[in-house]
Amino acid sequence: MKTKNSNSKKEFINQVRKQKGLILIAAPFFIYFFVFSYLPLWGLTMAFQNYKPHLSFFEQEWVGLLHFKNLFTDPDFYRVMRNTLGMSIINLVLGFVTAIAFALLLNELTGKLYNFKRIVQTISYMPHFLSWIIVCGLVSNILAMDGGILNEILLALGLIKEKIHFMGKPELFWWIVGFTNVWKSMGWNSIIYLAAITSIDPALYEAAAIDGYGRFGRMWHVTLPGIKSTIIVLLILNAGWILNAGFEIQYILGTNGLVLDVSETIDIFVLKRGFGRSGGFAFGTAAGMFKTVVSAVILILCNKIAGWVDEERLV
C-alpha cells in the first residue's frame, strides 16, 4: 500500500517535471482566471449578510436567505423580470429575423451589384460602433415632439393629426428598444451569417437551379438549411443571455416616471437597489446572484435541447 502510494507520488512529480514547460505556459492564465473570475466570487457572501462596508468580514452579521426572501416577495422584482423577459424576447426575435433576412438579401446581390453590396454592408454595420449614449441621443431627437423628425414626417404625410409623445408612452417603450437594437446591430449580426453562407457549396445552387428553383426557392432550400447549424448555435448562445435585456438604453431613455414601470430591467434593478439605496449592497448582490444562476440554468437547458434536436452541442 505504502509503496504504491509513494510510487504514484513519484509518478506525479515525474510528470510535473516532464511537463513543466507546459505548466509554466498555463500558469499565467490559471492565475488570471483565479484572480479575476474566481476570487471575486467571494463577494457573493454579501448576499447572506447584513452587509456594511465599514465592517470587516468577521464583524458582518449573517442573515441567511433573508435577502432572497425579500427579493421574491418584492412586487418590483416581478415587474423587472417581466420587463427583462419582454424586451429580451423582442430583441431576440427581431434581432434574429432581421439579421438573417438581411444576410439572405445581401447575398443575392452578386455580379455587377457586388460593389453596391459592399457599400450597403459597411453602412449597415457602422452603427454597431456608436456608443449607446449617442444612439440614445439620436433616438430621443428623432422621436421628440419638439422638432423630432419622425413626428414632422408623420404630420406632413397626414398620418397623424397630433404629435405623438413617443418617449412618454409605456406601450411603445419595448418596441423603441427593440427597433433601436435592430438599427444598431442588424448589420453587424448579419456578418456571421454572410460568412456561413460563403461556405455553402456552389454546386448545390446549380443543382437547385437545374431542378427549377427560383431565387426564393434557392434561398429556402439551399441557403437557409446551409446556415441552419450557425443559427442554432447562435440561438443557444443568445438564449443564455435572455436575462440581459440591455442596460444602457433603458437607463438613458427610461428614467422618467411615465415609462419607469416598463423600462426597468433586472440590471437596473440591481444597480438601483445595490448602489442607489443606502444599505442595499447585500440585496443587490442577492438579486445579481439570482440572475446569474438563472442564466446558467437556461444555458445548460438550451444546450440539452440542442442535443435532442441532434445538433452540435456547445458545452
Binding site: 462596508p53 438601483k272 448602489f275 442607489g276 439605496r277 449592497f281
Partner: peptide, 29 residues
C-alpha cells in the same frame, strides 16, 4: 447615489470629499 455607493463599496476615496447631498452615506460608511 450610484457613484457614491461604488466609492464606498470599493473604499477608494480621494483625499477630500465635498459631501453635498451624499453626506449621510459617507458618514455612515
Amino acid at each position: 447615489e450610484q457613484k457614491v455607493g461604488i466609492m464606498i463599496a470599493s473604499g477608494d476615496y480621494p483625499d477630500l470629499i465635498g459631501a453635498g447631498q451624499a453626506r449621510g452615506r459617507f458618514l455612515n460608511a
